[in-house]
Design a protein around this nucleic acid. Sequence first.
RNA 1: GGAGAGGUGGCGGAGUGGUCUAUCGCGCUUGUCUUGAAAACAAGAGUCCUGAAAGGGACCAGGGGUUCGAAUCCCCUCCUCUCCUCCA
Length: 425
Amino acid sequence: MLDRELIRTQPDFVRHGIQRKGLDSSIVDEFLRVDSAWRSLRQELEVMQAERNRISKTIGQLMGQKKIDEANEAKAQAKAISDALPEVEARNRALEEDLNKIELDFPNLPHESIPDGKDENDNPVVRVWGEKPTFAEEPKAHWDVAEGLNLFDLARGAKITGSGWVVYTGQGARLQRALFNFMIDHQTRKNGYFEIYPPFLVNRASLIGTGNLPKFEEDLYKSTDDLYLIPTAEVPITNLYRDEILNGEDLTIKLAGFSGCFRREAGSAGKDTRGIQRIHQFDKIEMVKFCKPEDSYAELETLIQDAESVLQTLGLHYRVIELCTGDIGAKGAKCYDLEVWSPGVGRYLEVSSCTNFEAYQARRANIRFRREQGAPTEFVHILNGSGLAVPRLYGAILESFQQPDGSVIIPEALRPYVGLNKLTS
RNA sequence: GGAGAGGUGGCGGAGUGGUCUAUCGCGCUUGUCUUGAAAACAAGAGUCCUGAAAGGGACCAGGGGUUCGAAUCCCCUCCUCUCCUCCA
């Protein structure tokens, strides 16, 4: 959601931002049309209400003075207004609903600093850490490494649930569990995030707050009772403060939580479908920050660094790219992707996406703060990023640390969590 | 799932359908007093929308209804608490 006042007073600026993302800016004109109709009708409505309220008050006084005839006359006047009100109210409500719907469909504007571009091929590389590991023989892809060690079972996952659902087994299950335990410890103890363990199902209002609804309904698993399985812990964690006014002194608030993530769309594009690169359920640590507007770009830099520090600790080669206007999507203002090198697949795979939403989510979720007591409320800026997603990291570990004999050396930092130095058959 | 009791401002807690403001207390802000603080006294203070402003409107969990007028009466939904049932 954008500031209504900004759309009203600087429509060209808003149009330009939407067009930079390659999106349709006619929504601006639609908004302006409905907004002005709504505001003028609202004036009309409020004049009627004020008049009715005024007359109603005099009725009480007249009754008290036993001026029954005058009271009855006033009653008739008030009733005439009250009879006319519902029709105006209904029109007003209809316009208001239209306006709200349009408002929720608005994309966020890109930050002025982000590079123009058409798609992912135009994303500049910001930095590279480490080097590609070298192998005596051609490195195997993680699904081949895993097969030799019986780490996960895609066939049986498909049997018990469906295609794109994975069962981790034995040492593979242990590595999986070790990875998210290691990462939540890393982000909370080393990087100073406050730990959250959220529900995995949320209500509709929460998904509207983060911007997943109403637009991306088809990407979500819906349960009975109108609850949705979360696509990321971003949803419950961001919504912790929905409809709240935060104390400015408490900012920046840094939260990190573990959750399962459930995505219907995964695999539907027919891309990256092998192994565990794209699956319907995966585990992830998510970091969320709530901060003052003037701090959010500095917080974005430390957020991506916090995500990177996981890969550094594990000794995995990676690069950071910045998403261009054509690839950033509707919700973000600026976004970095963290991509780990996957030697067997032979590509860099996204393990984290760190985004500054500025006030976009805060407006939707109504999360505000006061700089000090008595100060006016302002919207916070909200950022989030994975810290990290497990499956692709899992794959990168298998591929990067595979040995000629088929075993996999466990990185030092992970050993206390796995309880093994290497995975063997 | 069943029975009962509830949901009012930052918190606690009143509120016979109307008469100028949703009592009051705590907490909060400012002022008086004080070297400073406390105490006392006085004043102030909610959120949102709309409007250039003056002003107007909405909000007592949410949504409907009755009425000239609803925190108050009626209906539905959600949530909390107690007890029962079930369950890990």
